[in-house]
Amino acid sequence: METRTATGEREHERLSAWFATATPAPVEALTAWRLNSRYPRRLSTGITFDVVLADRSLVELSYKILRRYEQTLGPALRFTNLTTAAVLVPPGTAARWSGLVSGSSWTNRRIPVCLGWGHAIRIPGTSPPPQGVSVEWLQAPSTESAIGGAPLLTSPVPLVRCLAEARSILYPDEQRSPLGRAVSAVRAVLRSPQRT
């Protein structure tokens, strides 16, 4: 049997109420979640949050970098059966996302995408999930640093910068253009000892 402190119960209620606003029927969703806070929920994006999807390794490293730079870390989740993670960002981010990432010269293969209005995402419950659930919190939401009961979300501008920094650390060869990679390859051959 699951026990919660009064503080934990209040936090669960506030988070559930906030998440419920991203459903077609908030009152019914909140009632159902009171019965079981452990199971994932399917929520619409573009209402209370947009979602940035990227490689899990990029999101995990960018969160370490954001923490190092003392930036606000909003909720983020990882899909245990995929190589993808998602970051909850303020609503409206999807409309300006392409402008934010355009200056970072992303390769098409790893470019993070942002989902706004008209999409949905599966998020974990607010209590620890049972074994075998396909989605879990990388950074759980918290009402400790909340405004009006809503958890703070990751700001998209520092997120883009930290995702780009993470990409340069994890995939340094992707930073260079094909011409730059060719020049590096030629230099490496010229520097290597010549056999006679």
Rank of each mutant, 00 (worst) to 15 (best):
R14D: 07
T107L: 09
L179C: 09
L159S: 06
T154K: 04
P112S: 03
L77M: 14
V157M: 10
L73A: 03
V157C: 01
G118P: 08
P156A: 00
P141M: 11
D173A: 01
T93E: 06
P91A: 01
S142D: 14
T3I: 07
R96M: 06
V133E: 15
A32C: 00
N36S: 02
D55S: 13
R191P: 00
I123N: 02
F79Q: 04
G118M: 00
W106I: 02
G103E: 10
R110W: 13
P112W: 14
R176Q: 15
I121D: 00
Q139A: 07
R67N: 07
E165A: 11
R14Q: 13
S105H: 05
A140C: 12
G8A: 14
R10C: 01
R34I: 03
R167M: 01
E144P: 01
L159P: 09
P158E: 03
T72M: 05
T84Q: 11
G148Q: 05
R41V: 01
E174I: 01
T45H: 06
A22P: 05
G92H: 10
E136W: 13
P128M: 11
N108R: 14
F49R: 10
G103I: 03
F49T: 05
V87R: 11
V59M: 06
W18N: 00
V27I: 00
S192T: 03
S184E: 09
Q139V: 14
V87A: 02
P193A: 06
L15T: 02
T31F: 11
Q131E: 13
T126D: 04
P178L: 04
A150H: 12
V135Q: 07
A150V: 03
A20E: 03
I123C: 04
T3S: 04
L61F: 06
R122P: 01
V113R: 14
L15M: 09
R195H: 07
L35M: 14
V135N: 03
L152P: 00
E70T: 01
L159R: 07
W106V: 01
L53R: 15
P128L: 08
V52D: 09
L73H: 08
G8Y: 13
A54D: 05
M1H: 15
P24N: 01
L115T: 05
G46N: 15
L100G: 07
V51N: 12
G180F: 14
A94R: 02
R96Y: 10
T31D: 09
T107I: 10
I147F: 02
R187F: 02
K64Q: 15
T23S: 04
